[in-house]
Amino acid sequence: MSDAPDLVIDVRGLNKSFGALHAVKDFGIQVARGRICGFLGPNGAGKTTTLRMLCGLLTPDSGEGSVLGFDVMKQAREIKQRVGYMTQKFSLYEDLTIEQNLTFAARVHDLDRRKERVQAALERLGLVERRAQLAGNLSGGWKQRLALAVATLHEPDLLLLDEPTAGVDPEARRTFWDEIHAMSAEGMTVLVSTHYMDEAERCHEIAYIVGGRTLARGTADEVVDASGLITFHAEGPGADRLAAELRTKPGVEMAAPFGTVLHVSGRDRTALEAAIAPYRKPPLEWEETRPTLEDVFIQLIHDLEAEKRRAA
């Protein structure tokens, strides 16, 4: 592509419906080579559907653009050859061994030096001794790592990961993300959907999707800045129990307890400060902080609901 040679993904206006359900609306994104882009959003937001459109598994109803320089509407096969895709649900052959799954991937991608590559992958995984074990007998964390190894065996230029760390313990999640960063450092572009806020922070950029619509896009900082949100924390005995009460005050757009800490946010500083003024006394300790991504996302959902109510 002449206009932007380093954009691995450059799509606009992608739409996908299942019957009456408009699962993805006007999705557009540009991702440069070597970047890690996170997809966030509640269940049913359309993350999986979007990833499937980007790897040629679903044909968009409409839209345009390119993935790895290939037409996203017409060149699914070419895209598939250079994309690695790790599905949300474990989708390797459970009745094949670890090694057989890797060998299958090597053959199906027509790779040279198959034995060598499979052996290298087993060593990287630390599964050389257990190569003959059935994939179905692996624990969740190991399944995830094997799936990643299979998805990256052919050294794809673009890696799509659909909730790769769901249900995996924190230690395994950290290792997983270290691997992803290592691959991105070598020039692999990564798209990853997740529910974890800490993982969102480890992405170079994020897209927040709700109901098929992209509500926010950019780096974590950009998303927070763009929200225009002002947030106060309250800490102290009973702070978390004030949420319901505060929420009804004008100027408070969001009040949510996080453990024992209460987050109160709004976009109108004067109104917000007026609303919390009656509570700004000991034993509660108040402090203005930078909104977290989670504050912003909750805010975005509220906005969307308010908009729906007005429309109705």
Partner: peptide, 13 residues
């Protein structure tokens, strides 16, 4: 049903 179809179709086979 087992979900392996998604992986299979994601390959260029």
């Amino acid at each position: 049903e087992r979900g392996t179809m998604e992986s299979l179709l994601a390959t260029p086979v």
